[in-house]
């Protein structure tokens, strides 16, 4: 049982990293970013490419992926999303288009496949990333056998969540983000450069998703479509947790991750996901504002 709970916790960690970015972009900017899943995918591909071209392992790929996906996120925000503020459902549709574009870019090896050039690590096929030896195997803690890689995921997530919290609570830019979450117009009136803060927030959220992708590549196959289920799960976490409430996202990521791993252990993965969807529908019907929200959008 403790083993199952632990698997659940590592799942929750990935969910949380994906959801944090969505929670901020949705809560602060009113953007439903369907291309967020593609940031996870790009993160995973960064891990693949880093191994092939730079001989870098998963741990080293983390900062690279953060930078890469943050830049991609920044470009998306500057070029497209910024024109759509205030049109919630339109952001959903436009970013879905972006998601398709990114997926096809990977599949077509950035378009190079047309000229007969093939980039190892890209293309429509499946990719795998080995876990470095130091993170393989298990160790014992208080009599329980623990999978080292899963523990690594949890530790990294806790560290990143702490960094995010510190950024939000202890820096001036974090304070501006919180102001925008509460009331974007008022924040702008008080001299917050909303456009700049939004862009940085978007980039940061994308970067976190990229890191989630790197860590996923260690225990899942990497392929161009892998992002879609992630963005769905991420949204469910945000909605269940309550829009605009980061603590809510943390708790609901924990809740959904645990439910998933417990049901998966009892029945199978398919039913586990089905149960998650059922639970989410129930929660939205009973508490549309989310379990832990202080405000609805």
């Amino acid at each position: 049982m403790i083993d199952t709970m632990f698997i659940g916790l590592s799942l929750s960690s990935i969910l949380l990293l994906v959801a944090l970015g969505l929670a901020i972009t949705y809560g602060a900017m009113g953007v439903i970013n369907m291309a967020h899943g593609e940031m996870v995918m790009l993160g995973a591909y960064t891990a693949v490419l880093s191994r092939i071209w730079l001989d870098a392992n998963i741990v080293m790929a983390i900062p690279i992926a953060f930078v890469v996906t943050a830049i991609v996120g920044l470009v998306i925000e500057r070029v497209i999303v910024r024109r759509l503020y205030g049109r919630l459902l339109d952001t959903l549709l436009a970013t879905w288009g972006i998601a398709i574009l990114i997926q096809q870019a990977i599949r077509l090896e950035l378009g190079l496949s047309f000229f007969g050039i093939h980039v190892e690590g890209l293309g429509p096929g499946l990719q795998n990333v080995p876990v470095p030896a130091a993170l393989q195997g298990t160790f014992h803690l208080a009599g329980v056998e623990i999978n080292t890689y899963r523990a690594f995921i949890i530790v990294v997530t806790i560290a990143l969540a702490a960094v995010t919290w510190l950024l939000l609570q202890r820096t001036s830019i974090g304070m501006q983000v919180r102001a925008i979450i509460r009331n974007p117009k008022m924040a702008a009136a008080c001299g917050v450069d909303v456009a700049r803060v939004n862009a940085l927030t978007f980039a940061f959220g994308s970067g976190l998703a990229g890191i989630a992708g790197v860590m996923m590549s260690g225990f899942k196959t990497v392929f161009p479509d892998m992002g879609t289920p992630m963005v769905v799960d991420g949204f469910l976490v945000v909605v269940v947790g309550g829009v605009g409430s980061l603590l809510g996202s943390v708790l609901s990521a924990g809740l959904l991750g645990e439910i998933n791993s417990v049901v998966a252990a009892l029945k199978n993965d398919t039913i586990a996901r089905a149960v998650i969807f059922g639970v989410v529908i129930l929660i939205i019907v009973v508490k549309p504002k989310g379990l832990f929200s202080f405000r609805g959008r």
């Binding site: 497209i80 759509l84 998601a99 599949r107």
Partner: peptide, 19 residues
């Protein structure tokens, strides 16, 4: 596969310019 990318692009453009 290119066509799929074009669909994605059309979609972005329609939302932006022909809502």
């Amino acid at each position: 596969e290119v066509w799929k990318a074009v669909v994605g692009l059309i979609f972005v453009l329609v939302v932006l310019y022909l809502p």
